[in-house]
Design a protein around this nucleic acid. Structure first.
Ligand SMILES: [Mn+2]
Ligand SMILES: [Mn+2]
Ligand SMILES: [Mn+2]
Ligand SMILES: [Mn+2]
Lengths: 233, 233
DNA sequence: GAACGGATTTAGGCTGGCCTAAATTCTAAT
DNA sequence: ATTAGAATTTAGGCCAGCCTAAATCCGTTC
């Protein structure tokens, strides 16, 4: 049988990926933040941090978080590439909905060989973005830094393109899907209620062209957009 | 993150699959046989057997081996189905050679959900055999018992069809592939040397039609054939 | 029926990865 | 400067799965 593992352990890979995600939203990754994402107790994180830093994958400043080393970042990006290629493949080739691929990819990312991932990427024509609009790192660890802002920060009157949404919550994704709000949709922000109220957008390019959508503040924080022009106003 | 496992642990599933395989070549599965297949030490097998029988997956007669319970057999067949569907999918849809799919499937079989497996099966048109000719169990655990015999046991003058070859050894598979010896090939046994000597076959239907192949005794034990007719002689 | 050899199990130990409870450290407010 | 509260780490424990060394059992042979 001889089940040769394909990289680090499932657990190690998920820690590295999580730390990468937290770092890319600025600053070092804190123990409690890692614990929350991975749904484990903080002391479990402290323990893993010790092992990771002994393996040279992170640097640990006690009481102030961890940072990936180059080796750690490389390993993390390999997992991210696997995850995103898998999500794209499952969606494009096996009819998965965009709200159900994440869970499957979360497991397969630790079992699929590089060879399999590259075959899938090839079969897909080397896609640059996953079904949620997230950039796919290249084989040698290059990743596009998206210059998007949250819908909540787009001013009224501006025209923007929806570029990326978080892939974690299937319910959110199903809801957005029903509204036709997927990456690529172009819209104008036509209204915003005060006191963190909802935002109204008018869809310009999409399957649901020319409809207005009212989007709650919390949801609007999850929609990452690229502002393309400013309306004359 | 919340990596929900899809079945039993990787280790448990490989034990169940191994026990299933040993049982189907007759009698109870012995500790040492399991240890050899899984490449672990015998005491590790004793330990796992204890856990498996506490979980009701096997019955253990101390010093004389284990047998799968119904629950154990069901679980084993689910893993076998996953494995064989995966091998078929990788071969048919992603251009894998038949000698490299086994290792990949050995890992993916523990990470792929039932949903994914059924989608792959669907995309393949619900195949009945994997690339090595092994029967694929149905979703509800039915499996065809192949009535094949080893080439080594086919008499000179008989016509037989190659039906199934072991999937474990990539080198053997590469060699057979180069000879054009894949499931479906029809041939006549035209000679056999004494003292466990090689067997000569004449290929009747295949890409390498009308060639003679000399096959060593050991290899001939791995080729499972269906005798179709007897030559007039 | 005793003894030998091989198979198996038991005993004891290790690592990874998780947990809770307790101790420590850092920060920020007084 | 103290100190309360939150975050973090340390201490100590548990389970799955592996290992080696030692004990035990079983079938066979004498
Ligand atoms: Mn995802
Ligand atoms: Mn994962
Ligand atoms: Mn196989
Ligand atoms: Mn396996």
């Amino acid at each position: 049988m001889a089940e040769t593992p394909v990289g680090f352990s499932r657990s190690t890979e998920d820690y590295l990926k999580t730390i990468y995600g937290l770092e890319s939203s600025g600053g070092p990754a804190l123990t409690s933040a890692i614990a929350e994402v991975l749904e484990v107790a903080p002391p479990s994180v402290s323990g893993m941090i010790k092992r990771l830093s002994e393996s040279g994958l992170v640097e640990h400043a006690p009481y102030r978080g961890v940072q990936l080393t180059n080796a750690g970042r490389r390993a993390a990006l390999r997992v991210v590439r696997r995850h995103r290629i898998l999500e794209t493949y499952l969606t494009s080739k096996l009819g998965y909905d965009w709200d159900s691929v994440h869970e499957e990819a979360e497991r397969l990312e630790h079992a699929a060989s590089d060879d399999l991932i590259e075959r899938m990427a090839m079969a897909l024509g080397n896609p640059q973005y996953d079904p949620h609009g997230a950039p796919i790192p290249t084989k040698d660890g290059e990743i596009e830094e998206p210059e998007t802002i949250a819908l909540v920060d787009v001013a009224v009157g501006e025209i923007a393109e929806l570029r990326m949404v978080g892939d974690r919550d299937p319910d959110v994704l199903r809801y957005l899907g029903a509204l036709g709000l997927k990456p690529g949709v172009l819209f104008e922000v036509v209204g915003r209620q005060p006191f963190r109220g909802p935002i109204t957008i008018r869809v310009i390019r999409s399957t649901k062209k020319d409809t207005d959508q009212v989007i709650g503040n919390e949801l609007a924080q999850l929609l990452h957009c690229l502002v393309t022009e400013e309306e004359v106003g």
